[in-house]
Simulated assay, not measured.
Amino acid sequence: MSEKLTGDFRKFMDKSFLGSWDVPDGGDLILTIDHVARDDVQNEKGREKKMTLHFKEREFKPMICNTTNAKAISKAYNSTKVEDWENKKIAIYKATISAFGQTQECLRVREYPPKSDELFCECCGEVISDHTADGKTYKAKAIANNALSKFGKYLCYECAQQAKAEQEAQA
């Protein structure tokens, strides 16, 4: 029996390492570093040894760790020693960069230890936080989930209000 697939096709390809397609839209992937290793990586130059992060969450593939991400982890935990990174949580997000004349998605690590329930607005990029309006407090998770169901993406309170106004103007 076949299984219907949805989402980015790259998730379903035989990939050995974590990619931008493995990160949820509008959110961070929070993972715990089990250990840092040097693995063989196949690229356009052939096989190379690269630094990789292996995670305690075994359902996730290892991540190739470039200099930018290594510096971010080092800053988050105030240590350049990879053994100090073991058992530390990192927040991995999807970024867009221009390299070699092309725009492409990549993985980036936030420069601070993550909060486990932190979500980011897909419109403005800010952390979605609790919001109080008309004497009522709306929790960040509820704001994000409500926006996801209404607009198809995680939005902060302000961006959700703007999306609602735009939707009403089009009606």
Rank of each mutant, 00 (worst) to 15 (best):
Q167D: 14
R108E: 15
D34W: 04
S116W: 02
A160D: 12
T52N: 05
H54K: 13
S74R: 01
K150D: 11
N146L: 09
V41T: 07
Y154L: 12
C123A: 12
Y112G: 05
I30C: 07
A165Y: 00
A95F: 05
M63Q: 05
D117F: 10
Y157M: 06
D25E: 15
K4R: 05
N146A: 13
S2Y: 09
I33V: 15
D28R: 08
E48D: 14
Y154G: 00
N78E: 13
G26H: 01
P114D: 13
L148H: 03
T6W: 03
F100Y: 10
A169H: 06
T137L: 11
F9N: 07
R38N: 09
H35E: 12
Y112R: 10
E158L: 00
T52A: 13
N43H: 08
I92R: 03
K4T: 13
K89E: 15
E126P: 00
S98E: 15
K115H: 13
G7L: 08
G27M: 09
M51N: 07
Q102P: 00
V109Y: 05
E118G: 03
D39V: 02
G125D: 08
A133R: 07
K71Q: 13
M51R: 13
Q162H: 11
K71C: 07
K11V: 09
E166S: 12
T96W: 01
C65Y: 00
M51W: 09
C123H: 08
G26P: 04
N69Y: 00
G7H: 04
E166C: 07
Q104F: 10
I73Y: 08
L148E: 04
A169R: 11
A160W: 02
M51H: 05
G135M: 04
S129K: 15
N146W: 02
P62W: 01
G46L: 06
Y112L: 11
D117Y: 11
S116I: 07
S129T: 15
S149T: 10
G152L: 02
Q102M: 14
K15T: 04
A70C: 03
Y154T: 03
R47M: 08
K164Q: 15
Y154R: 11
L155H: 03
P114K: 04
S20P: 12
C159W: 10
M51V: 15
A163F: 07
F9P: 11
L31H: 05
G19R: 10
F12P: 03
G135T: 04
I143V: 14
F55S: 06
C121Q: 06
K61R: 15
D14Q: 02
G26Q: 04
A99F: 10
E122V: 00
D8H: 14
K150S: 13
L53C: 08
E105M: 09
K15H: 07
E168L: 13
I73P: 08
R10F: 11
Q102K: 15
K56D: 11
I64C: 08
P114F: 08
A91D: 07
M13E: 09
S98M: 07
M1N: 12
A163Q: 09
L119Q: 05
G152V: 03
I30D: 08
E158I: 01
E166H: 13
A70P: 01
